[in-house]
């Protein structure tokens, strides 16, 4: 290619292309606009308000005052009671995630391996049925089941497992497990349903036992479901408010209840705001680390 001859540039075309390009960008922006607006009004602005209030001070009556900016609320986070509540919440959220996984995985696996698509659909609807009634109502139903003469309490008493359940930590735990199990099952089901089962056959054909084939093939390939399910269970468990409020007692305060109390009974908005913000940032960092580690192992 030695000819450097100038070709007459087709003038209209690049202009046309640029315009099409711009129109596409505008169209994309317009399509996303409702979502942007929603996020700005209901997520970014409230978050900003929380952030601002965390530096505010309080009047003598407990009213937040938007002057005398200070870091007192953040200093207060170092109190032992905060650490205790955070540790309890973290423990409960972790335990709930692990148990949801332990119960949800076999169930999702069983669900995904049913031959008939119709049967699968029916079972999936059964998983979703609890969502047809209000979470609050369902939690109150558990209050009956776990109450002094509730079915679950009586059963445990007969078996000698427990004497009292309601307003104890196990009650909160049962409530959390019940509430978040579907959030584990659904992503796991989605991952397992997409599974190419001929890969498991290939592993069996290559001398793997059923269990080894599961460990070496099914489990690694369903990992995205495990990750999604774990995050969907862990994060709301950590911030759970309704369940511990209704089923737990004074000794089972979790982060969610503690934060709410700052805005209500304690009338300490700046402290509540600071705590909310720090929990949010901590969860964000934890999630990022979780994804990163996973990206490396896959």
């Amino acid at each position: 290619m030695t000819t450097t001859e100038e070709r007459p540039a087709p003038a209209a075309e690049p202009e046309f292309e640029r315009r099409a390009e711009r129109a596409k960008a505008v169209r994309g922006f317009l399509q996303a606009l409702p979502s942007y607006a929603y996020l700005v009004f209901f997520f970014a602005i409230p978050l900003l308000i929380v952030f601002v209030f965390s530096f505010a001070s309080r009047s003598r009556t407990g009213k937040p005052v938007l002057s005398d900016w200070n870091l007192d609320s953040y200093a207060k986070l170092l109190q032992p009671v905060v650490a205790e509540i955070a540790a309890r919440s973290l423990w409960l959220a972790l335990l709930n995630t692990v148990l949801c996984l332990a119960i949800g995985y076999p169930f999702a696996y069983w669900l995904a391996t049913r031959r008939s698509a119709r049967y699968r659909a029916v079972l999936l609807v059964l998983v979703l049925i609890p969502f047809w009634s209000n979470f609050l109502v369902r939690t109150y139903a558990w209050r009956v089941l776990l109450g002094e003469h509730g079915f679950v309490t009586e059963l445990g008493r007969a078996l000698g497992l427990w004497d009292k359940l309601l307003f104890t930590q196990p009650a909160v735990f049962i409530g959390l497990l019940y509430g978040y199990l579907p959030f584990m099952v659904l992503p796991l089901y989605a991952a397992l349903e997409r599974m190419d089962w001929s890969l498991v056959e290939a592993a069996r054909d290559l001398y793997a036992s059923g269990w080894t084939a599961f460990r070496k093939v099914t489990l690694p390939l369903s990992r995205p479901g495990v990750i999604a399910g774990s995050i969907l269970v862990f994060i709301p468990s950590l911030g759970a408010y309704v369940t511990p409020d209704i089923l737990g007692g004074a000794k089972t305060t979790l982060l969610g209840n503690y934060i709410v109390r700052q805005f209500t009974a304690a009338r300490n908005w700046p402290f509540g705001a600071a705590l909310s913000f720090v929990v949010l940032v901590a969860m964000l960092i934890a999630t990022i680390i979780y994804f990163r580690t996973d990206a490396r192992t896959i």
């Binding site: 190419d196 001929s198 890969l199 056959e201 290939a202 592993a203 054909d205 290559l206 070496k216 093939v217 690694p220 390939l221 896959i298």
Partner: peptide, 14 residues
């Protein structure tokens, strides 16, 4: 003592 070459190959993607 047999091995199979599958129609879809069934190679382990991970």
């Amino acid at each position: 003592p047999v091995n199979t070459v599958f129609q879809s190959y069934a190679l382990f993607p991970h």
